[in-house]
Design a protein around this nucleic acid. Sequence first.
DNA 1: CGCTTGACTTAGACAAAGTCCATCGTAGGA
DNA 2: TCCTACGATGGACTTTGTCTAAGTCAAGCG
Lengths: 138, 138
Amino acid sequence: MSDLLERLRGRGWRMTAQRRVVAEVLDGDHVHLTADEVHARAVTRLPEISRATVYNTLGEMVTLGEVIEVTTDRRAKRYDPNAHRPHHHLVCDRCGAIRDVRPTGDPLSDLPAGERFGFMVSDVEVTYRGVCPECASA
Amino acid sequence: MSDLLERLRGRGWRMTAQRRVVAEVLDGDHVHLTADEVHARAVTRLPEISRATVYNTLGEMVTLGEVIEVTTDRRAKRYDPNAHRPHHHLVCDRCGAIRDVRPTGDPLSDLPAGERFGFMVSDVEVTYRGVCPECASA
DNA sequence: CGCTTGACTTAGACAAAGTCCATCGTAGGA
DNA sequence: TCCTACGATGGACTTTGTCTAAGTCAAGCG
């Protein structure tokens, strides 16, 4: 994760204990925590960190493009540190588990000009839905 | 919209003034209203309709498969009556405008078995993002 | 036709997720 | 080491949605 920390430093981020903890909590592959989950884990390392700070820090990371916001359902937004490898998401409809996936092909090129309604289309998010092995066998 | 009303009747729905109004409000193409917007419009026709009823009715329509829930951002869910023609969505990042689009190709077949992590994948949602003509010229 | 019944509606309390703001604290440069 | 602007805090507030207890009404039945 020092990877993420390094990048943030390099952008003139003022380093504080709170920011370090949030960045550390977000480390790893297939990590998709909600803001509250990030807060809960951060608290175990830095008991006095506030919810507002977690929200602020996550928001800044998103703005800097170091973390991606994922909205897979009506519930809370999730935060995905895997921002530097383009990917999409596979979500379990039963338990909400999320995996990063990389489909073949480019969905952007699948949208013909006639279906763009004059928009300048810049991005596409693909969410696959199904049932994960654990839920299927339960 | 009598189309939607007819289908609902046929499923043994008890017909009430409230349900009729909600169904009528949802009529049309490229309609993606939030529950609150549906309520606001319903109130102009039936002043005493309550928020809870609008939520209940929308939820039932979704369960019956006559209306689709669309979650494009952190804000409110939107309701799309165009449930019987498969389609995806194009969203303006500035003003939130939504258009129904139909890309070529099938994203489901773009997810190789090795990227499915044992999931039984049953559905895929594609959200294109960009800037609409109105926002681009403003 | 009017009765009955259970499905439907209502208002408001409640909950979850997130934002805002005034104030206090501190990282890091001089 | 001292200063100061940037960051952190926590509590109030907002938005979106759910739940519940009590009242209302659509529609089948006689």
